[in-house]
Amino acid sequence: MLKDITLGQYFPGNSLAHRLDPRTKLILTVLYIVILFCAKGFVSYGVVALLLLTGIKVSGVAPRALVRGLKPILFIICFTAVLNLFYTPGEALASFWIFTITKEGIVTAFFMVLRITMLIMGTFLLTYTTSPIALTDGLETLLGPLKRVKVPVHELSMIMSIALRFIPTLIEETDKIMSAQKARGADFESGNLLQRARALVPILVPLFISAFRRADELAVAMECRCYHGGEGRTKLHVLRYQLRDYLVLAAYGGVLAAVLILARLGM
C-alpha cells in the first residue's frame, strides 16, 4: 500500500545514537559531509568509512535498511560511475570504439561511488535515529539566533512538523480517492502523457479541496487550543546537551582534523 513507503523513515530505539541531542546529530551530519568532501585518498576514505561503520554499529540500525535506502538513487550512482569511468583522462587500460577506460577513471569512479553512497547512508543515519519532531525541534533551536534577523524560525518549524504530521493522512486519502475514481472506471494506466496527466484531475481536485478543508479545520482547532504563534510558548521537552554530546562532538572534531591532515598529505 501507498502509506507503507519510507520517506526518511524513523526507527524508534534507545541506542546512544538515538539518545544524542538532535542538535548534536545535525551538527555531526554537517561535519560528516564536510569530512567526506575533504577526503582524498584511500587512507582518508578509510577513516570516513570507519566513522560511518561506527555510526551504524552504535545506532543499532540494520545495515539492510540503509542499503534499501540507496535504491531510489541507484540510477544516479551508476550514472556517475559510468561518466567518471569513461571520461577521466589518463593512462589507458582498455578501449573500444570511442570509449576508453583509464586507470585514473577507475579510481575516480570508485571514489565517487563511495562518496555518494556514504553521503546518503550517513544522512539516512540521522533520519533513522531521530524522530521528525526531534529533528524540527533541533533545527528550530539551532536556527534560533536567526530570529533576530527576522527569520520566522518558529513558523518554519511549525510548518515542517505539521507537514510531517499530515503526510500519512494525505497519502491514505490519495489512496482512497484513487480507488473511488477507479470504481467509476477511471483509468490511470493507459494513454499517452497528456491523457495520463488529464486522468489525474479526478484525483487532484478532491485532494486539494480536502487539504484546504483540513487546513481550515486544523487552524480552528489550533486556535481553540490557545495557539497564538511562537511568542511565550514553552515546551514539553527542552533540549539540553549532555556530557555524551560534548564527547561525541570532540571526537568528531578530532576526526575532521585527522582527515584534513591526511588529505593534505594526499592520502
Binding site: I133, L164, R165, R214, E217, L218, A221
Partner: peptide, 8 residues
C-alpha cells in the same frame, strides 16, 4: 484527523 497537531 483534523485536530491532531503533532506526530507523537
Amino acid at each position: 484527523d483534523n485536530q491532531i497537531v503533532a506526530n507523537v
